[in-house]
Design a protein around this nucleic acid. Structure first.
Lengths: 192, 192
DNA sequence: TATCCACAAACTAACGTTCGTTAGGCAAAA
DNA sequence: TTTTGCCTAACGAACGTTAGTTTGTGGATA
């Protein structure tokens, strides 16, 4: 990917994030770049191509992160904390892409959609494995693993809806708070 | 709203849920009803009108639920459990609408969008108040209330992504599991 | 009981606009 | 001289919506 293509894609992502894939026209994207719509096709083969690049770039980042964590020998709690930390970092460092990745992947079509879903499932599987580790170690309560995974991922992914780079919480702090909340819950420890 | 209008809207919602608001054409909706596109305008003033009705109907359901709970004198934990139970029930009993409500509200425009966001904020405020109650009672740990609210709502709302009416978890069971998870967290009580 | 009317709910036909995309050319950089 | 990046011009398809009309039904009136 050339430098120029990267620039164009980044600009496109800023628009796609704001209006959503289906509601964004190729003309909208071109306008933000002070370009003619047709010129975009020097870089991309289609509108969906931009979506595909965005979604798969993000999916690969998550894939790499979970693989790395799984290869390290830590206990379940440490692994989960690391996974959440990495996940938050990927989301916040690529906020435009992340929002598109989370909201608009459904607009992928054909084989791309299938592969994307497969990658997503594989990532979820990685998280499930971590939670199962914690349970096997006797450290996590014997919860429904699939249910817990979905619940955790939903709350981690939700940060893209409110995270502001200029806000008063930085990504590590967010990860810390999230991990604590997920691991300990709402009820005061002294009551348990 | 006449009975026929209700039928037509329900059918429209089934399509809107599947394809998303922006990617669904009026012709798609008409086709599912074996109707001409123009005939829909006997019932609705515009495509957005269908979205508006759907989103505000759901918003009102949530508004009523939180108001009722707040008016009852229970402690924070009970209130939170009830709020989650009601929330899950509204989502699962109106699954098509719920998915549109959660995913496509951004396509509302002008005043409708403003009012919708206001209603949403007001609901969040209701949840925050419940959590604050739990903290004031000394039962919940002194967590960031806004943060906790968003985290809780994200995991509750996420159930629409995997809930299946014919699945092996019914709504009360889901609410129970979610409440337990949110209140107690992952770590085994004996370790705390 | 037969006729009329009001109304709901659908129709046909088409409007102007916007959509994603393509073909082919042109200028500057390598 | 080839390549990169953009341009102009335009294509056909799909879009939301409208105007005006037809059809069927239920209730009031002759």
């Amino acid at each position: 990917m050339t430098e120029r293509k990267r620039q164009v894609l980044a600009s496109a992502q800023r628009i796609l994030k704001k209006k959503g894939y289906a509601s964004t026209s190729v003309r909208d994207i071109a306008k933000a770049l002070s370009m003619e719509p047709a010129s975009l096709y020097s870089h991309f083969s289609s509108k969906e191509d931009m979506l595909k690049l965005t979604c798969f770039d993000m999916a690969n980042k998550f894939e790499n992160a979970i693989n790395e964590i799984s290869s390290l020998y830590f206990d379940g709690e440490q692994q989960l904390r690391m996974a959440i930390k990495q996940h938050v970092e990927i989301l916040t460092f690529n906020l435009d892409s992340a929002i598109i990745f989370l909201r608009d992947w459904r607009n992928l079509s054909g084989e791309s959609l299938d592969i994307f879903i497969q990658k997503r499932n594989s990532y979820e599987q990685g998280i499930r494995k971590i939670i199962q580790t914690g349970i096997d170690e006797g450290r996590f309560s014997e919860i429904d693993v699939k249910f817990a995974t979905l619940t955790i991922l939903s709350s981690v992914n939700w940060i893209v809806e409110w995270y502001k780079p200029e806000g008063n919480l930085n990504p590590p702090q967010i990860a810390q708070k999230l991990s604590d909340f997920i691991l300990s819950g709402l009820i005061k420890t002294t009551y348990k």
